[in-house]
Amino acid sequence: RTAFSSEQLARLKREFNENRYLTERRRQQLSSELGLNEAQIKIWFQNKRA
Rank of each mutant, 00 (worst) to 15 (best):
T2Q: 13
Q46A: 13
S31N: 02
Y21V: 09
G35D: 06
E18A: 09
A50W: 09
L9N: 05
R49L: 13
S31K: 04
L9Y: 05
Q28V: 09
N19Q: 05
Q28T: 07
N19V: 04
R26V: 06
L9T: 06
E24C: 09
R27S: 15
E15D: 02
T23E: 04
E24K: 15
Q29M: 10
L30K: 00
N19E: 04
I41S: 00
L12I: 02
S32A: 14
E33A: 05
I41M: 03
R27V: 15
K48N: 10
E18V: 08
K42M: 15
L30G: 00
A39N: 13
E24Y: 08
G35A: 06
W44V: 02
F4H: 02
E24G: 09
I43S: 10
Q28W: 06
A50I: 10
R26P: 00
T23G: 07
F16P: 00
Y21D: 07
G35E: 05
R25L: 12
E24R: 15
S6V: 11
E24H: 11
G35W: 02
E7A: 08
Q40N: 05
F4D: 02
Q46P: 03
T23C: 05
L34Y: 02
E7K: 07
S32M: 14
S5K: 04
I41W: 03
N47V: 11
Q28N: 07
K13Y: 14
N19W: 05
R14W: 09
S31C: 09
I43H: 11
N19A: 04
T23A: 04
S6A: 13
S5D: 06
I43A: 12
L9R: 06
R27F: 11
R26K: 11
L12Q: 00
N47K: 11
W44F: 08
Q46W: 11
N17K: 14
R1Y: 12
F16Y: 10
S31M: 05
Q8K: 03
N17R: 11
I43T: 11
L22V: 05
E7R: 06
S32H: 12
L12W: 02
R25Q: 14
E38N: 04
S32D: 11
Q8W: 02
I41T: 02
R20W: 08
L34K: 01
R14N: 08
E24Q: 13
A3H: 13
R27A: 15
I43W: 15
N17A: 14
K13Q: 15
E38Q: 06
F45G: 00
E33P: 00
Q29T: 08
S5N: 10
F45T: 00
L30N: 00
E15I: 05
R49Y: 07
E18Y: 07
